[in-house]
Simulated scan of single mutants.
Amino acid sequence: EKIDFLASLPGNMPKTLCLIEADGKTYRGTIVEKKGGSVFVRTSSKGAPAELPIESITSLHPLGF
């Protein structure tokens, strides 16, 4: 539910910064989109968004805007 909500925010609203734990790693960033069984997370690095399978996500904590 959280993933669906955060991925479907309108473009005129700021994206919510999240702390995501998946596969034993911790990611801090914003959810860019949900496509199929994966979530794309833009982290603080300027590279391409990280692709995380939804099944691998163990926790998701919104930190704020």
Rank of each mutant, 00 (worst) to 15 (best):
T26H: 08
K34C: 01
I31L: 11
K2G: 05
F5D: 11
A7M: 01
D23E: 11
A50C: 09
K2E: 14
I54T: 04
G29E: 05
T26K: 15
E33T: 12
V39F: 08
S8P: 07
T26P: 04
F65T: 13
V39K: 09
T26N: 14
E21G: 11
I20D: 12
Y27P: 12
A7S: 14
G11M: 15
S56T: 14
S56F: 03
K34S: 05
G37Y: 01
C18Q: 05
E21D: 11
E1T: 14
D23H: 05
N12C: 14
G29N: 05
N12L: 13
K2F: 09
P14H: 05
D23V: 03
P10G: 06
T58P: 06
T58V: 01
I3K: 08
F40P: 03
P49D: 03
L60K: 10
T30Y: 09
G24N: 07
L60F: 06
I57E: 08
I3D: 08
L63H: 01
R42P: 04
F65H: 11
T26L: 14
A22T: 00
S45C: 10
L52R: 04
N12T: 13
I57V: 12
C18L: 01
P10T: 11
L9R: 15
K25N: 11
H61Q: 12
Y27Q: 11
F5L: 15
T30V: 13
N12I: 11
P10N: 13
S38G: 00
S44V: 10
Y27S: 10
F65S: 11
G24D: 02
L52M: 02
R28G: 00
I54G: 02
G64I: 12
G47F: 08
E51A: 14
R42E: 14
P14V: 10
P14D: 08
C18W: 00
S44F: 06
S38V: 04
P53A: 13
I20R: 05
D4K: 13
K2T: 08
A48K: 12
L52G: 01
I31V: 15
A7L: 03
G36H: 00
G37L: 06
L52H: 01
P49E: 02
I31Q: 11
F40K: 04
L6Q: 07
